[in-house]
């Protein structure tokens, strides 16, 4: 059953076509990889799908409904979560607080009255939910540290946890492995697989690290110059001469 469907998404910046008639679909619980060389338009596509940018043409359907001009936070409430390539963590807050903010936002819990009456107390059930996600991502030991003191890899996991605790139907991961070394990447890949295995969530991920994509994705879509040049099962697509050309610039 198709969860997300983008049809003919086109985006121009000052005359340059960043996305040209791009189609992308993702089924429930599927993990789709979005790959392509530098400047191919991957992050632009993410921004169009999550509502940060408005596409100039094309439609984005989620669970069959047209998302139209819905703002970022409204799409989030429908169950679309994301992480960021340039991380958007909350400076000065602990890891646990990141998840708590996300959890309460998702449940629409809390607010001024309860702040003043309940004195901001954390309910045991909240603590359980937060700790469950932290445990799954291997972040329990870092729970009370401010995110500012974390390594890049841990920071990326915090973003992932913040997204997952909102119980999304679909998560966009924007280069979750960029800036990580091989060992860190392998760890995050394993964590991601485990987290996906026990949730009803689909993932679309942009990534350069082809190894990681091979491990994670059944299906990939390749963007080049804002166009889809290949899509299909991961192994087939990676053997595709057009894709190798796009990656290596080989023209034989």
């Amino acid at each position: 059953m198709t969860l997300l469907e983008a049809r003919g998404v086109t985006k121009r910046f000052a005359g340059i076509v960043a996305l040209d008639d791009v189609d992308l679909a993702c089924d429930e619980r599927e993990i789709v990889g979005l790959i392509g060389p530098n400047g191919a338009g991957k992050t632009t596509l993410f921004n169009c799908l999550t509502g940060v940018l408005r596409p100039d043409a094309g439609r984005v359907l989620f669970e069959g409904k047209d998302l139209g001009a819905l703002a970022v936070h409204r799409r989030a409430r429908l169950g679309i979560a994301r992480t960021f390539q340039r991380m958007e963590l909350f400076a000065g807050m602990t890891v646990r607080d990141h998840l708590l903010v996300a959890d309460r936002a998702h449940r629409r819990a809390g607010g001024l009255p309860s702040d003043l009456v309940l004195r901001g107390r954390i309910h045991p059930s909240e603590r359980d939910r937060v700790d469950r996600v932290l445990a799954q991502l291997g972040l329990l030991d870092d729970g009370d540290r401010p995110v500012d003191a974390l390594s890049l890899g841990t920071g990326r996991l915090v973003e992932l946890g913040r997204a997952l605790i909102t119980e999304p139907r679909l998560v966009f991961l924007d280069e979750p492995f960029s800036g990580l070394d091989r060992i860190e990447t392998d760890e995050v890949v394993a964590t991601l697989q485990a987290a996906h295995a026990e949730r009803d969530v689909a993932i679309v991920l942009v990534e350069h690290d082809v190894t990681a994509v091979q491990h994670l994705c059944e299906r990939v879509v390749v963007l080049d110059y804002g166009r889809v040049i290949a899509s299909g099962p991961t192994d087939t697509v990676l053997e595709d001469p057009a894709v190798r050309r796009a990656y290596l610039g080989v023209t034989e």
Binding site: V72, H73, F90, R119, T166
Partner: peptide
């Protein structure tokens, strides 16, 4: 009152917004 707000849901959301409006919006907060 200010401390209660700071340590409560509202304060956490505001603190979060201070460093990343996009991050907060992506959680479904306006």
């Amino acid at each position: 009152i200010v401390l209660l707000i700071r340590n409560g849901t509202t304060g956490r959301a505001l603190t979060a917004m201070r460093s990343s409006e996009l991050g907060v919006a992506s959680l479904g907060l306006s």
